[in-house]
Design a binder for these strands. Structure first.
Lengths: 196, 196
DNA sequence: CGGAAACGGAACGTACCGTGTCGTGTCGTT
DNA sequence: AACGACACGACACGGTACGTTCCGTTTCCG
């Protein structure tokens, strides 16, 4: 998570203040107008302290976002694969719909294309684990015979998350529950139906 | 397309030089490191001229991207809906895979969240027309009985484009032809199969 | 208790922003 | 053919945020 000097001397107090200030500023003025200097000022911290532990603004907000994501959208297993997928997708959609998380995540995504380290961190810490969880839940349904054995589970996950990302980056109004239910139903149908 | 002073006196020569320089700079140093000043210098143009016609860097690159998009991914109708969708999605994927278009589009997307006018322009000029085209092609297949009458065509388009955007913003390696074929097959299956 | 290291604060030069001014050139109008 | 309007290139401006450096202080480990 952290990056450089590797020490237990690090001030947890400052770390929390920085992450908190970063999210707060993101709420009130938007990701693009958040600056390292403003974060430092709001957190009562010197810029040097931020630069010591994070390489960029994106890295600060990625850590803040990841921290805040803890049990935001848990992956339950009630036995009903449809209901569980709906619950999970709805959790992700809802999280992205409230400031500062929607704008913060969009801002982080926007920096991936010129920051290789950040892209790697995001995939390793956020995306891949969640994809694995989703595949695991689908496989569990597969074991119960709710999904055919040969189904392409990774593709299924992309078909679920894809429209969520599509809508998020294009800033179309977030989907309501019915849209999510329809999406999940379509994906399950695509897995279940006979080959094309 | 253009914005402010509305005149026929505008120098087409300068306009072309600016759009060309913007894309070139995007190729060689990445969207995030392209500046208005650098575009002006590379195009042999004063900053004032750029600010006279475009409100932001994003607007310049949106126009450059849109111009370059002409017949990049045509929407054909061979009668085979599966083949046509594969062709179309492959065109979009291929376009995004080559510099400067991939990075340029990602950069434009990144600015949508703090630039309402740009977001509106992108949707009106780029996204909505293409979505309409896609829906039109699906409807044509519907008329021929290849897709059931009640199918949710807008959702189908999102299921097609969604994974493309998902992969693009997360910078996962672009899909190959087989992945695209599988995706298209799944979407068509989801439309075709009986209700869940 | 001593030293190493993280800390806050302040200042630095650099880069780019968006705007303003000015003189030049070019294109419509009459 | 001459005028006048307007886009043009150039240059300079104040402002903001960058990332770094220095310094003196505080905090924690051994």
């Amino acid at each position: 998570m952290t990056t450089s000097p590797s020490s237990a001397r690090r001030s947890e107090r400052s770390r929390r203040a920085i992450l908190r200030a970063a999210l707060d500023l993101c709420t009130e003025r938007g990701y693009g107008h958040v600056t390292i200097e403003a974060i430092a000022a709001a957190a009562g911290v010197s810029k040097k302290t931020i630069y010591r532990w994070w390489p960029s603004k994106g890295a600060v907000l990625l850590e803040a976002f990841t921290d805040a994501l803890v049990d935001a959208t848990p992956f339950v297993d009630t036995g009903d694969i449809g209901a569980d997928l709906r619950t999970h997708v709805a959790g992700a959609v809802k999280l992205l719909s409230v400031p500062p998380f929607g704008p913060a995540y969009a801002g982080i995504l926007s920096e991936l294309h010129h920051d290789d380290r950040l892209a790697q961190q995001l995939r390793e810490q956020l995306v891949d684990p969640r994809v694995e969880e989703a595949i695991g839940r689908l496989r569990s349904a597969q074991d119960r015979g709710q999904i055919p054995p040969g189904a392409d589970l990774p593709l299924a996950v992309e078909m679920l998350y894809g429209p969520v990302y599509y809508r998020h980056v294009l800033r179309k109004p977030i989907q309501d529950g019915e849209t999510i239910a329809t999406l999940v139903a379509h994906v399950l149908r695509a897995l279940r139906a006979p080959g094309y």
